[in-house]
Design a protein around this nucleic acid. Structure first.
Lengths: 231, 231
DNA sequence: CGACAGCAAACGTCCGATGTCTCTATAGTG
DNA sequence: CACTATAGAGACATCGGACGTTTGCTGTCG
């Protein structure tokens, strides 16, 4: 096919070139169709694709606008992509986290403010209180890591790591952790990371984060193996 | 809106649940429309979105199929996302590369075969021969880093790093490098990485890769600053 | 047995109509 | 005068059908 894909490419290049800057409003669909030489249907498909990529923001009854193009938006798709990866490639994802998250945590140790540390302490407390509630544990776990990475001030990095730790991936790991009575130990690992961050010790933060991701990876392996055995 | 997005979500969940495994063929569009309770137009938009995300493969005259869902496909979108990032966030991307690529290169040092090393040597030679041809330099530069990272055997990692080093980003850096008469020095950096890999020295590989990314980052800063000054 | 023509199925594209939502300007009201 | 309710215009959402083009298959013919 060509027409619709051409339209997608054309819109993308108009945005990339600055002809359609963030916040700009696109012409109405019929007009856009005329400009690009295809029917409104084709334009709608093209717009829909860019909307799903968070490049365009379609407001019904109003018009279509270019988003802010912030990393947090454009990299959102990474999360859904990871959700669709097959089981055997999840270990690859975990390996990337293992490479990236410790470095990011180490960097966070250098930049974290007292306020942010207190925030972490609060999350840690919540986690302890959540005990065996898998749902809440996952939620606080997500918040913990997000908060740590976010303090690097690098939104791209944060979005990437958020995406790599998709919800279903986290859920699987925690399912294993809880069933294996390792939730408590894992919460302690978070505490260790917290302590390293509070002492602004980059190396220790790096090491504790690596230990932690390693634990997650191990449990993911367990869960995947158990699941494979079921068949 | 709801109908089309519901359809997207429904298709995605059918794929994620394994109801539509890789390679599976979807029902024809009209039938799909009936199943999901919307018109063919809506189905087409949904399919188009998933096709652009490399989740579905639409073959005209034949039918629509689920792709292999390989990381290389699903993470392809990262590249186009990075292409659309605004200039001020490119430095964030570079910072992520700076964190990830050295680790990956270090890992490659442990796993690289002699054949792969020879391949690298060839690329290096090509690079030297390309001299001032920016186009070729970019191409060989891309090949060099891709080859190194690919030897980690981690397709997810490879796709991520490929995506982070988008073509336009590379092009900008090299433009700066050439205009600044630093192309030769940069090629030497590649040589240093190569030597570290050949001696299977993980730490040295890590260090040389960091030095190299750092150089790229510095030139990106220069290019961005020069561009900002133009206005 | 192989090549070719024809057919059926499926996607690509277009068109026009109608529904629904938003924004805005206007008229009305206290 | 300020505020509110409302009517209308504009824009996207969805639908239904029609027609073109491509692909894969199949049955026939040499």
């Amino acid at each position: 096919m060509a027409l619709t894909d051409d339209a997608i490419a054309k819109l993308r290049s108009m945005i990339q070139s600055g002809e359609l800057p963030p916040g700009a409003r696109l012409p109405p669909e019929p007009q856009l169709a005329a400009q690009m030489g295809l029917s409104r249907s084709g334009v709608r498909e093209a717009v829909k694709v860019l909307e799903s990529a968070r490049v365009l923001d379609v407001r019904r009854g109003d018009g279509t606008y270019v988003t802010s193009l912030a990393p947090r938006l454009l990299l959102e798709g990474l999360g859904v992509a990871v959700e669709l990866l097959r089981d055997d490639t999840l270990l690859e994802v975990m390996e990337v986290r293992r490479m990236l998250e410790p470095v990011a945590t180490g960097m966070a140790a250098l930049r974290m403010t007292d306020t942010q540390l207190d925030e972490l302490a609060q999350i840690l407390e919540d986690m302890r209180a959540a005990a065996d509630d898998a749902e809440k544990l996952i939620q606080f776990d997500t918040a913990f890591h997000h908060t740590v990475v976010a303090t690097t001030g690098n939104e791209t990095l944060t979005s990437l790591l958020d995406g790599l730790s998709s919800r279903t991936l986290r859920a699987r790991v925690w399912r294993g952790l809880i069933e294996g009575n390792a939730a408590h130990k894992t919460i302690d690992e978070h505490h260790a990371i917290y302590l390293a961050l509070r002492s602004r010790d980059q190396l220790l933060a790096h090491a504790s984060a690596l230990m932690h991701v390693n634990t997650s990876e191990a449990w993911l392996r367990t869960v995947l193996a158990a699941q494979a055995a079921e068949r």
